[in-house]
Design a protein around this nucleic acid. Structure first.
Lengths: 247, 247
DNA sequence: TGCAAAGTTGCGTTATTCGCAACAAGCGTT
DNA sequence: AACGCTTGTTGCGAATAACGCAACTTTGCA
C-alpha cells in the first residue's frame, strides 16, 4: 500500500469539499506543506487539480474528463441514456441508473426531476443495499448463495420506520422482487420519498443495471408512484432490448 | 514532484481507456507489477479503481463521486442547468457550458442532441482556444493585455479551411465578439459543424462561463443555426440573471 | 513602506517504495 | 484428472524517492 497515493487521494477528497489553500491542505493531512506541495504539483501536471489566481486549489478538468470518459464507456449507460432521458421527460421525476459492482450498488446515471425539490443522490454514490429499490433489483438477481452472503454482511441501519431490519426480511423481499420483476422503496430510505425500480438485462440475460424513478411525497403520493410502474417497466425493457437481452 | 503520484495518475489514465489486467498495466507503465499492485491497492482503497471477478481493473465509483461532487459545487453549473436543459429541449440540439480556468477553456456541462449524430466532446475536455465559439466568448472578456498574451501563446492548429490562423486574426475576432455579445464557430473546428455561443456573467459582471449550441450541417444549415441565436442569448441572460449579474 | 502570512527552494535523513525471486492460485489443455 | 502455463501475491533487502526542516521569496495588507 502506497502512503503517497493514499495522501494524494486524501488531498482530492479534501478538495472535493471545496477550494483549499496549501496550508489548509497540509493541516488537513497533518503533514508538512512541502510534502503537500509536491503531491499537488504532480496532481496539477495530470490536470487533476488546478490552482486559481489566488493560489487556491480546486479539482481540475482532468478528473472530470476521466470520469466522464469512463462513464461513457459503460455500454449499458450509453444504451440506457436515451430511454432514461425520455422517461425523465415523460414523468418529470428523478430517474436513476445503478449497477452492482464490488459488493456495492452504485449510481451510474441520474436525470434530475423538474421539481424544485432535489434528491440527495449523485453519480458515483453508493445506494444502501437494504433500503433502496435499485439495490433490491440488483441483489435479487444474484445467485441465492451470494444473495445470502450479502444479506448477512449488510449493516441494517434504520433510516425510517419502514426500513428493512434484517437479513431474513430482506431475503424474503428479494424473493418477491425476483418474482414480480420490480422493486419498491416505500419510504424506507428517506421518510417522504418513494421509489420504484426495474431490472435491465444484457445479452447474457443477467441483470446488469437497475433503472428507477424516485418521487417525494409532496409531489406524488405513494399510490401514484406505483402508477408510474408501467412506464418504468417499458423503459427497462426497451433498454434491455437495445442491450440485446433475450426476450 | 512525486513519481508515485504521477504513476498512479498514469494508471488511472490507462484505465480510462478500458479495463486492464495487472500485467497490462505494469507493461504500460514500464514498471514491475509489484509496484503497480501496490499503487492499485491504494487506489482501490480510495474506491478510485475497482477489480472485477476476473481480476480486471476498472475505474471505480469513488472517481465518479468526486467528479460529480466537484461539478455540482460549481455554482454556475447548477444555476445554468435548468436553463440549459430547457434550451436543449426547445432546440433539440447539443448544448454546452464551458468555463475558462488555468489558461484553458473546459467543458463543464453538456446536453446531448436528440439527433443520432453525436458530437465528439465531453465534460472535462478542453475546447480549442482558437476555433470554438465558447472559447472566443471566454477569451473576449479577458483584459486586453491578457488576451494578447493568450493569443500569442496559442498554437494555431488548422482544422478546417475556416480555422483562424494567427493571433492578429483571433484578436480582431475577439474584438467583434466582445462588441456583439456572442461568438460563432462557422465550421472552424469540425468541417460540418457550426456553433454559436453566448457569455454568462456572475455578480461581478465578469464572464464566468459560455453557453453554446452546436449543430451539424446535416441537421441545420449555417443560416438556421444563426436563427437559434435569440434563444441562446435569452438563455444566457436568464442564467446570468439567476447568478445575480448586474443588468 | 514595512510587517505578516503564505508559498517555494535546497538539502540531508530515513522511511518508503522498488524490484527481485520465490510462492500461490486459476485456467485451459492434453 | 493431472499437468503446465499464465497471472496475481508475499517477504525481504537495497536504494531511491519522499519527507520535513530551515532559510528564502513573494504577496497581500495595514
Amino acid at each position: 500500500m502506497s502512503q503517497t497515493v493514499t495522501r494524494a487521494l486524501r488531498l482530492l477528497a479534501e478538495l472535493g469539499e471545496g477550494e483549499r489553500s496549501l496550508d489548509q491542505l497540509a493541516q488537513a493531512l497533518g503533514v508538512h506543506k512541502t510534502t503537500v506541495l509536491r503531491l499537488l504539483q504532480s496532481l496539477e501536471e495530470g490536470r487533476f487539480v488546478h490552482r486559481d489566481a489566488n493560489h487556491r486549489y480546486h479539482l481540475g478538468a482532468g478528473l472530470f474528463a476521466l470520469s466522464s470518459l469512463a462513464l461513457e464507456q459503460r455500454g449499458i449507460r450509453r444504451t440506457a441514456a436515451p430511454h432514461l432521458a425520455e422517461l425523465n421527460a415523460a414523468t418529470g421525476q428523478t430517474v436513476h441508473l445503478a449497477a452492482y459492482e464490488g459488493g456495492e450498488a452504485v449510481y451510474i446515471d441520474k436525470y434530475d426531476s423538474r421539481q424544485p425539490v432535489r434528491m440527495y443522490s449523485r453519480i458515483g454514490l453508493r445506494a444502501s443495499l437494504h433500503c433502496t429499490a435499485v439495490a433490491k433489483v440488483l441483489l435479487a438477481d444474484l445467485p441465492p448463495a451470494e444473495r445470502r452472503k450479502v444479506a448477512a454482511a449488510i449493516e441494517y441501519t434504520p433510516h425510517t420506520a419502514n426500513t428493512i431490519a434484517g437479513p431474513r426480511q430482506l431475503l424474503a423481499e428479494l424473493e418477491q422482487v425476483a418474482a414480480q420483476g420490480w422493486a419498491q422503496d416505500h419510504a424506507e430510505h428517506e421518510p417522504f420519498i418513494n421509489c420504484v425500480a426495474a431490472p435491465v438485462r444484457d445479452v447474457s440475460g443477467r441483470v446488469v443495471a437497475a433503472a428507477s424513478v424516485s418521487v417525494p411525497d409532496v409531489v406524488l403520493p405513494y399510490e401514484q408512484v406505483l402508477e408510474l410502474l408501467p412506464q418504468l417497466l417499458a423503459t427497462a425493457r426497451a433498454i434491455s432490448a437495445d442491450a440485446g437481452a433475450p426476450v
